[in-house]
Structures are given as C-alpha cells and as structure tokens.
C-alpha cells in the first residue's frame, strides 16, 4: 500500500426529509414522555383548571371588570398561568434533569441536530399550552357563560404558541444555572410569585401600587395584557409596549442561557 487509502465508503449525508423526520420524531416522543409523566401532566394541566374553577367560576358573582365579565377576564389570566407552567416545568425542569443524568451529553455526542432537541421541548410545551387553554375556554363557555368569537379564540391560541417562547428561554436559562436537585423548587419560587405579581390570579388593578409598578418587568404581566387585548379589553399600556417587554425578556433569558452554557462547556 503506497498511499493512504479511504478505508470506508463515505456515508451518505442526511437528506432534508430525513432531518425533518428527526424533528418530528423528537417532538412526538418528548410530548409522549411528558404526557406519560403523570406528576408533570396532572399538575401542569390540573392547577390552572382548578384555580380557574375556584377563582373564575365559583367565586364569581356575575361581576364585571371594565365592561367584561369576571369569568372572561380571569380566563385570560389563567390561560397565561397554564402555559407559563407548561414551559417553565416542561423545559426548565426536564432539561436540568437530563443534563444532570448525562443524557444530554449522549444526545450531543449523537448526530442529532441540536436544534431538534430544543424544538421538541418548545413545541411540546406549546401543545400543552394549547390543551390547557382549550380546557379553560371550554370551562368558561359551559360553566361561566363566557362568550368568545372564533376570531378571539384563534387569537388566543396564536398568543399561546408565541407566548411559550419567552418562558421556554427562561426555563433553559434556569436549567443551565441551577443544579437539578433544586430546579423544581426554584422553578416554583419563580413561577408562583411571578404569576401573582403579573396579575394572573387577581386582576392587576386590585394589587397594591408598588406591585403594579413592579409588574412592568414581569413577562407574565405583558403576556396577560396582550391576552386581554385579544379579548377586546383595554390593557394598561399599549400592545407595542407589551411586545417590547416580552422580546426584551426573551433576549435577556437567551443571553443568560448562552452564558451559562459557555460556562458549562468550559468546565467539560
């Protein structure tokens, strides 16, 4: 043998349809995994439903807030509460557990496109968000005599899908910063106060003045206001200001996640 020969035929690269199929498979099984993880599925769907039944339907005595019924107003808050939970726990807690177990490392060493992993987690959270919002809407219509036009419903769904993104980014940052054992606890410590202060449980105008000012930095506040706008309720601040708030928060969370990922890589 005089020259260095190619010892293996070069493997065929993946075609585009094959790559797309990886994204689909990854997403399908991530969703299935979350659905089968009862502790996740039950709490993430159950909490907003139970809260809405209590605070939106049972406690509601036919009052109106700014021209719309309490049941309708609260629907906006609890749908946001639900989708934030799905994103924060599905992505934040899921990712941190897989990171700690070494599973992420195996995935990274495999030829899986890294984006497929992140997309699977993000889209699964979106699907959970859609399930939660649909259930709450159904409850509102049947038990709370909420009237919702098709356009309003579609707008709400679109907002659910987009609204998952800032919280997915936040979940990612959380997973990369916090040790897996404390991730669920810390996620709750952020989730619950952020929901309350963002006006998801109690309408924002009923909160003390200090909290109302503080709410401006919370993504939950901006998303809830956008949801209310979709219902035709005049929000505090303009829609544009809320979009800017959400985008800013997303960029900040992604920046933190990137920084944390670099730090992890340097130590590996």
């Amino acid at each position: 043998m005089s020259t260095t020969t190619l010892t293996f035929p070069a493997t065929a690269s993946r075609s585009l349809p094959q790559t797309l199929r990886i994204f689909l498979t990854e997403t399908r099984y991530e969703f299935l995994r979350l659905l089968r993880t009862r502790s996740f599925a039950l709490s993430v769907i159950g909490f907003p439903v139970v809260f809405y039944i209590f605070f939106g339907l049972i406690m509601n005595r036919g009052e109106h807030i700014g021209g719309i019924t309490v049941a309708r107003y609260m629907l906006a808050g609890y749908t946001v509460f639900g989708m934030v939970g799905a994103a924060l726990f599905g992505i934040g807690v899921g990712l941190s557990a897989e990171l700690a177990a070494g599973w992420l490392e195996l995935k990274r060493a495999s030829p899986m496109p890294p984006l497929a992993y992140l997309c699977a987690k993000c889209i699964s959270a979106m699907v959970f968000g859609i399930i939660i919002v649909s259930l709450l809407t159904l409850l509102g219509i049947t038990a709370g005599s909420v009237h919702l036009s098709l356009i309003e419903f579609v707008r709400m769904m679109a907002l659910t899908i987009v609204g998952v993104i800032p919280f997915a980014a936040m979940g990612m940052a959380l997973a990369l910063l916090v040790p897996a054992s404390s991730a669920p606890g810390i996620a709750n410590m952020i989730y619950l106060p952020m929901s309350f202060c963002g006006g998801l449980w109690v309408p924002i105008m009923f909160l003390p003045k200090v909290l109302r000012h503080f709410a401006v930095v919370l993504p939950t506040y901006h998303l809830a206001q956008l949801q209310l706008t979709a219902f035709g309720y005049p929000s505090t601040g303009t829609a544009l200001s809320h979009w800017i708030g959400l985008t800013g928060f997303t960029l900040l969370a992604l920046g933190v996640a990137l920084f944390a990922f670099r730090r992890l890589e340097q130590n590996s």
């Binding site: 995994r33 993880t37 700690a100 177990a101 070494g102 599973w103």
Partner: peptide
Amino acid sequence: LQVGRAPEM
C-alpha cells in the same frame, strides 16, 4: 456513555 438516566417514560 455512563448515563445515570435515560428518559424513564
């Protein structure tokens, strides 16, 4: 790799 846990479900 030495993996502590694959997705359990």
